[in-house]
Computed example of a mutant assay.
Amino acid sequence: MSTHEGKVAIVTGGRQGIGCGVADLLAKRGAKVVIVNRTDAADVADAIGYGAIAIAADVTSEADWARIASTVESTFGRADSLVHAAGAYPMATLEQMTPEAWRSVMALNLDAHLMGARAIVPLMRKAGGGAIVAIGSDAVGMVTPPGFGFSHYITSKMGAIGLVRALASELAADNIIVNAVHPGITDTEGASGMPNEQKAQVYMQQAIKRLGTPADIAGPVAFLTSDDARFVTGQTLVVDGGWLRL
C-alpha cells in the first residue's frame, strides 16, 4: 500500500513499542519517517529503512522542538503528520506523589503535545495541510484497581483529549486534522514490568482476549494520518480489543 507516498511523518518515542510500530508501518506505506527519541535511534531508523532518519531530542524542550522542525524542513522541506507516542507512566499513589513527579509526567505526556504542534504546524501549513495524532490510553476510563497510582498519568491523558479537541477546531481552516488513539494494555517493553496476572485481569474483560501489539495500534494511526481520514477530526479512537465496551 502507498497511502503515505510523498508524505513526511514525525513520530516521537519511535525507538520502541507503539512508536516504533507506527514508524515502521508509515515507512512501509511510503512516508519519509522522522523518529524523534530522547536517546539516539539511528539503528532503529536504519532497520526500518525507506529513508527513515532519527533525531535525538527532548520533546519537553521548546529549543529541541525548534531544532527538530529545522532539521525536518532542511531535509524534506515539509511535514505532513506528527504522531506523539512518547510517554511515561510511573506509578505513584497520592501519598507518594511529589510535585516533581507530577510535573515530569505532565511535561512528557501533555506539554510536549503543545510544543510539538507549535513547532511543526507551520511546516504543515506550508505543505497545505496535515494530521496530528496523540497516542493516549484507555486508562482514562479505568475504574478498576489497575488504575490506582496513576493519577498523574490519567490526568495527562485526559488533558491530551482536551488539547486534541481544541486544536481540531483551531487548525481545521489550515486543512490540519487532529485526533487521538487510545490503546489498551499493549505488549511493549514499557509494559514488561507489569505482572502477567494483572495484564490478564484486564484483557480477559476485553472482547478480544489478548494483549494488543504495536501493529494493532499502528494500523489506526496510519488511517488517521492518511488522506482517507481528511473528514475526521477532534475524535478519540479507542483501540483496546473491546475493553471500554463495558
Rank of each mutant, 00 (worst) to 15 (best):
Ser104Arg: 09
Glu197Leu: 11
Gly21Tyr: 08
Ala66Pro: 00
Ala47Ser: 15
Met115Trp: 11
Leu82Ile: 09
Ile135Asp: 05
Arg67Ile: 05
Met194Arg: 07
Phe223Asp: 08
Ala215Ile: 01
Cys20Ile: 01
Thr93Met: 07
Ser74Trp: 01
Leu224Gly: 10
Met1Lys: 06
Val36Lys: 00
Gly17Met: 11
Asn175Gln: 13
Ala218Asp: 08
His84Ser: 08
Thr39Ser: 15
Ala66Cys: 03
Glu73Pro: 01
Ala166Asp: 12
Arg67Cys: 00
Ala200Asn: 05
Gly149Pro: 00
Glu62Val: 13
Arg165Glu: 14
Ala85Phe: 04
Met158Arg: 11
Leu110Cys: 09
Thr12Asn: 05
Ser226Ala: 12
Arg165Met: 12
Asp187Arg: 13
Thr186Phe: 06
Arg78Ser: 12
Arg245Phe: 10
Thr225Met: 02
Thr12Val: 05
Glu189Cys: 00
Tyr89Cys: 08
Ala131Glu: 03
Glu197Ala: 15
Gln16Glu: 13
Asp40Gly: 03
Gly241His: 04
Ala85His: 03
Lys199Leu: 15
Ala127Phe: 03
His152Pro: 00
Tyr50Lys: 13
Ala66Ser: 13
Arg118Trp: 07
Ile217Gln: 03
Gly13Glu: 02
Pro145Thr: 06
Lys199Phe: 02
Gly184Val: 12
Arg245Ile: 09
Lys32Arg: 15
Ala229Val: 05
Leu244Trp: 02
Thr98His: 06
Ile68Met: 03
Val11Gln: 12
Val121Leu: 03
Ile154Thr: 13
Ala218Trp: 10
Lys7Trp: 01
Asn179Thr: 12
Pro146Asp: 04
Gln198Glu: 14
Gly241Leu: 04
His4Thr: 06
Asn179Phe: 03
Met124Asp: 05
Ala166His: 08
Val59Asn: 08
Arg118Ile: 13
Ile53Val: 15
Arg230Gly: 04
Asp174His: 15
Met97Ser: 12
Tyr153Thr: 00
Glu95Val: 06
Ala119Pro: 01
Gly77Cys: 09
Leu26Phe: 06
Met115Gly: 00
Leu167Ala: 14
Ala107Leu: 07
Arg15Trp: 05
Phe150Val: 08
Glu170Val: 01
Glu5Asp: 14
Ile35Val: 12
Cys20Asn: 14
Val164Ile: 15
Trp102Val: 02
Ala41Cys: 04
Gly193Trp: 14
Ala47Gln: 14
Ala9Asp: 11
Val239Asp: 07
Gly77Thr: 11
Ile68Asp: 08
